[in-house]
Amino acid sequence: MKGKFSDILQYVFVIRELTSREIKRKYARSSLGIIWSVLNPLLMMVVISLIFSTMFKRKIENFPIYFLTGQTLWGLFSGATNAAMTALVDNKTLLIKAKLPKHTFILSRVYTSLVNFGYTCIAFVLMLLIFRIKPSFTMLLFPICIVFALFFSIGIGYFLATLYVFFADIKHLYGIFLTLLMYLSAIFYPVDSLPEAMQLVINWNPVYLQILFARECVMYGHFPEGWVWIRLVIWCIGSLLFGMIVFKSKENKIMQTI
């Protein structure tokens, strides 16, 4: 039992060390440092609101909040998967020495993204107060939404990290894919302005589902509908299983190639 416990402690220690490294590196040369994680979404919000809020005036109430909800969750997913993709290759020399399972490196990248998301949430809460969004009990569901986002990102992260070892090109391809997915996530436009066929597609988009979930429980004080829950659960389990199977089956090959 004692061995298991110290293993877990070590796991936490490693992930914290790797994460603090990532954050130190990211902001090594900037004077504002991690504050950028708060400022960035706020500035984005101002710009996007200036441009789009009049366009959708009649359709979306509190447009800046509508956008910010989407943007923060999108940032979590794209940040986590993008960073996880290069986790194994970037840590080549450490991988050989690592005493813990190799996927720790992937998890630490996702965790780094979560820490960043935490800072972004400061901006988010601030805006909720400024726009006087009515507090409601459904807001307590927001952490569940983050768990959905994390599990989904971890699965995709496993898959991308494995693929990236064998094909570095995937980085560029994934960049294009992310742009496409972002426009399909209804971050700054109302979904009902899309043609019906398109709405069917978007209602299966995992990132959009997360955003929808968050908007329902935070902005509107609604309990998210059953179909949203079901689809999110399917995506999470599917992504995790898929990612883990791909990673596990290629694990030895990764060490040979890297």
């Binding site: 490294r21 590196r25 090594a28 080549k92 020399t93 690592a98």
Partner: peptide, 24 residues
Amino acid sequence: GTGFDMELTARENVYLNGSIIGYS
């Protein structure tokens, strides 16, 4: 190839590297 992170200080590297090779 010791796996040090060139952008970090030596102290930070001791802890990062140490944690990876299994030190608490």
